[in-house]
């Protein structure tokens, strides 16, 4: 399988402080990889490095075999990024937000494609014409997920994607991720939700204070055991 994302001995500093320290992992085509870690572990920094917002101080971070800085536009066009705070425009409706961001990504979405994506994330039809300033966090998150879906990018970077979603929506979202992976999309998801990560990821990397302290791989046809990951996450057993 082709490797689409690769971090090798990746070290990144932010504000003069080492945030990632020699991290290595890769994500292949059609794979869901979860980076698990607590606050400040370096999860979001990893995503921002793949997006080219941050530069490694050593090691490498490659998107489709190239450093993002080599061709920033190509790297970003290959990626659909879902930030943690579902940052969209409050003065625009869900449909307008999607259309706006997709235009900027040089895509010309059909109205029915937008409706289909919003259906996929279960956003109520009557809310779709309302401005996002009146949305709950979960509703905004759904719109952001719809955008990631519509981007039709081969790689999805998801930063705490289920944050703010209700349990039903979380289950629906996990189903969606599996569906996308089945269709050949690669997903790098950073989260501190152990249960969620085990539900969807084929592999899990455990980050602690900028270092990769554990790796978990799902058995063929099965899922990673939540208990083992949880124990390692909580530091009860060595990862």
């Amino acid at each position: 399988m082709k490797t689409v994302l690769e971090a090798r001995d990746l070290s990144v500093d932010r504000s003069g402080k080492r945030v990632l320290d020699g991290v290595s992992f890769s994500v292949t085509e059609g794979e869901v990889y979860a980076l698990l870690g607590g606050n400040g572990a370096g999860k979001s920094t990893t995503l921002l490095t793949f997006l080219g917002f941050l530069a490694p101080v050593s090691g490498l971070a490659h998107v489709n075999g190239k450093a993002p800085a080599d061709d920033i536009t190509a790297a970003r066009r290959a990626i659909a990024y879902l930030p943690e705070a579902a940052t969209l425009y409050g003065h625009l409706t869900a449909r307008e937000n999607l259309r706006y961001f997709l235009y900027l990504a040089h895509m010309r979405p059909q109205a029915d494609a937008i409706e289909a994506a919003l259906d996929q994330v279960s956003l109520q039809p009557d809310a779709r014409g309302r401005r996002l300033s009146a949305y709950s966090k979960g509703m905004r998150q759904k719109v952001a997920i719809a955008l990631a879906l519509l981007r039709d990018a081969p790689i999805l970077l998801l930063d705490e994607p289920t944050s703010g979603l209700d349990p039903v929506a979380i289950d629906e979202f996990h189903g969606l991720i599996r569906l996308l992976a089945g269709a050949g999309r690669s997903v790098l998801m950073v989260t501190h939700d152990v249960y969620g990560a085990c539900q969807v990821a084929g592999r899990i990397g455990l980050l602690r204070q900028g270092q990769m302290v554990g790796n978990f791989t799902a058995p063929s046809g099965g899922r990673i055991e939540t208990e083992a990951v949880h124990a390692a996450f909580a530091g009860r057993v060595p990862a």
Binding site: L48, L51, F53, R77, T87, L88, Y89, L104, A105
Partner: peptide, 14 residues
């Protein structure tokens, strides 16, 4: 402030 700059850039906008 609204953290929309990163998503804008993430769409490949220069």
């Amino acid at each position: 402030e609204a953290a929309t700059l990163a998503p804008l850039l993430a769409q490949g906008v220069q």
